[in-house]
């Protein structure tokens, strides 16, 4: 069983990583969702004692690990919080750059930086000239 859970979590993580590398920012958010699901699945799997739900009165036989479930719950909530935040952030970035393509965002940043660099070079040259 541990192999299967590990395999499923790894597939989620791998596809999540693949999506994180996409140029489309919305797909990056999908990637974060998948990676967080992988983490939650791993948390549940980490307490995999395969028993009844840990609710009193306890049935005979094995009981599932309640602690890993509590951790999984917390992780799900945090995952929801950060995903919603990231999605809204992506929306604002798309609106600000008028493009949801990462590549274009990067290109604009590079252009801006190059402009800044040239400006500084020029200022520096002027300073040198003035000093002489």
């Amino acid at each position: 069983m541990s192999l299967l859970f590990a395999l499923a979590a790894a597939v989620l993580f791998g596809t999540g990583a693949y999506l994180l590398l996409d140029r489309d920012l919305v797909r990056v958010v999908f990637g974060v969702v998948l990676v967080s699901q992988a983490a939650v699945l791993t948390l549940v799997a980490s307490g995999l004692t395969r028993g009844a739900a840990p609710i009193y009165p306890l049935s005979r036989g094995p009981v599932s690990d309640p602690l890993s479930q509590a951790m999984a719950l917390t992780a799900i909530v945090i995952g929801l919080a950060v995903t919603a935040l990231l999605l809204v952030l992506v929306l604002r970035v798309v609106q600000a750059y008028r493009s949801e393509e990462l590549a274009e965002v990067a290109v604009r940043e590079a252009e801006r930086e190059a402009r800044l660099e040239r400006l500084h070079e020029r200022e520096h040259a002027e300073e040198e000239a003035a000093a002489r």
Partner: peptide, 13 residues
């Protein structure tokens, strides 16, 4: 942080 969480799960296990 998710990589960290994965490690936390492993350490708990």
């Amino acid at each position: 942080t998710f990589i960290f969480l994965l490690s936390v799960a492993g350490v708990y296990h």
